[in-house]
Amino acid sequence: MRRAKITIVGAGNVGATCAHWCAAAELGDIVLLDIPQAGDMPKGKALDLMQSSPIFGFDSTVIGTSDYAETAGSDVVVITAGLPRKPGMSRDDLLATNAKIMTAVCEEVKTTSPEAVIIVVSNPLDAMVQRALQVTGFPPQRVIGQAGVLDTARYRTFLAMELGVSVEDICALLMGGHGDTMVPLPSCTTVGGIPVTQLIEPARLEEIVDRTRKGGAEIVGLLKTGSAYYAPAGATAQMVEAIVRDKKRLLPCAAYCDKEYGVGGYYVGVPVVLGTGGVERIVELKLTDSESAAFQNSVAAVKELVSAMAKLV
Rank of each mutant, 00 (worst) to 15 (best):
D40V: 11
L94Q: 13
A19L: 01
T225V: 10
V196D: 00
P124W: 05
E162M: 02
P271Q: 08
A69V: 12
P140L: 02
T236Y: 06
M161H: 14
C18V: 11
L305D: 01
N123R: 04
G193P: 03
P140W: 11
K86L: 11
I194Q: 06
P42D: 13
A242I: 05
T103M: 04
S90H: 10
V109T: 08
P195W: 05
C257T: 09
P271K: 02
V77Q: 06
E304M: 12
I30A: 01
M128H: 02
T61K: 11
V135K: 01
E241L: 09
V183T: 14
P271V: 03
V220G: 07
A46G: 10
V209F: 15
V149H: 01
A300C: 13
V165P: 08
S52D: 10
V77S: 01
E207M: 10
G137T: 09
T157V: 07
E260A: 15
A203R: 06
E162W: 04
L95H: 03
R2L: 12
T212A: 12
D67F: 04
A203G: 05
Y266K: 08
D93F: 07
V209D: 05
V135N: 08
T80Y: 01
G234Q: 11
L250R: 15
V120P: 00
Y267W: 06
P140G: 10
V135R: 04
R213D: 01
L133P: 03
E168R: 13
